[in-house]
Design a protein around this nucleic acid. Structure first.
Length: 113
DNA sequence: TCACTGACGGGTG
DNA sequence: CCACCCGCCAGTG
């Protein structure tokens, strides 16, 4: 686990998010054991878009289900479009029924870890 | 080298 | 319920 860099670990988790589901930066940080460094997760995502284009960064939002990182995509509306494509409705940068789509790695991956 | 800046989150008043 | 503050730590000027 400590072999891979923090960023690599973040990418791993994000890559495992099921289609049509979302999670939060904090949840990932918590899963990696650095819950206080949720900021770094978001920071890592910034690099993900450039270094790992296939990472579904649009499935990661803040704990309110708000698309705070939309401005980091090719174009702001892309994040919303990608989510809508997976069946997740977004209004005014806010995911509808966020809890319903929420996917917590601590709960979903713990068993398979 | 120092200071500032964040795709965040929890705690406090 | 809202506003503000602090911790976290890599990258940038």
């Amino acid at each position: 686990m400590d072999r891979a860099s923090f960023y690599e670990q973040v990418y791993q988790v994000v890559a495992l998010i099921p289609k049509g589901r979302v999670t939060s930066y904090g949840a990932i940080a918590q899963y990696l054991g650095t819950k206080s460094s949720s900021r770094m997760v978001g920071y890592a995502m910034n690099g993900a878009v450039n270094n790992h284009p296939k990472i579904p960064a649009h499935r990661v939002v803040n704990r309110n289900g708000l698309l705070t990182g939309k401005f980091h995509f090719a174009y702001p509306a892309q994040m919303e479009e990608l989510l809508a494509k997976e069946g997740i409705k977004v209004t005014n940068d806010q995911i509808i029924d966020f809890k319903k789509y929420y996917w917590d790695p601590n709960l979903e991956l713990d068993l398979n870890r």
